[in-house]
């Protein structure tokens, strides 16, 4: 695999029911590529958390997954409200999600911390009122 393989997804911001479709598809694709199960688990959980964040906070966005010979790179890009205080958002348990979101089992304030936990590198570029781009790398 000298060239990268790219998977592109549009994340629908309207529905928690369809949220996860991109992550599940990525899981399937990575399994077909024969990646180790623990790598697949880390990639798909990190991506799902990002997808859910885009549905909760940003009315959707786009997700790109690039598979290289030695790493998987996930880029999540949205035109949402941006993150006012990244350090605070990275704290486990801090959440601005609504009660309706919490009643579905989300909004525990673990999304960004989980994304960091399961990836080797995570970069957050965010501008309030413009959007957020998160780049996550998982080394193979």
């Amino acid at each position: 695999m000298s060239d990268k393989l790219t998977f592109h997804f549009d994340v629908d911001g309207e529905s928690f029911v369809s949220a996860g479709q991109a992550s599940v598809q990525v899981k399937k694709n990575l399994r077909e590529l024969g990646l180790p199960p623990e790598v697949i688990r880390r990639v798909s959980i990190a991506m799902y958390e990002g997808e859910i964040n885009m549905v909760i906070h940003a009315n959707g966005g786009v997700a790109d997954v690039d598979v290289y010979e030695d790493k998987v790179v996930i880029v999540l890009d949205d035109k949402g409200p941006g993150i006012k205080d990244v350090a605070l958002a990275m704290q486990e348990g801090y959440s601005t999600a609504s009660d309706q979101v919490r009643s579905l089992g989300f909004g525990a304030g673990m999304g960004l911390p989980n994304m960091k936990r399961y990836t080797d590198d995570m970069v957050i570029e965010t501008v309030v009122g413009v959007g957020t781009k998160i780049t996550m790398t998982i080394r193979l």
């Binding site: 928690f16 029911v17 949220a19 996860g20 992550s23 599940v24 199960p37 623990e38 688990r41 959980i45 799902y48 958390e49 859910i52 579905l104 089992g105 989300f106 525990a108 304030g109 673990m110 999304g111 911390p113 989980n114 936990r117």
Partner: peptide, 27 residues
């Protein structure tokens, strides 16, 4: 709490819960 489960549960675990919506299946 779904993110808590994703952060802590391990592969092959039994996941004991009362959360039964479609997101449970994805998680």
């Amino acid at each position: 709490l779904l993110s808590w489960v994703m952060g802590r549960a391990k592969g092959d675990n039994v996941w004991l819960t009362i959360m039964s919506n479609v997101n449970t299946v994805a998680v």
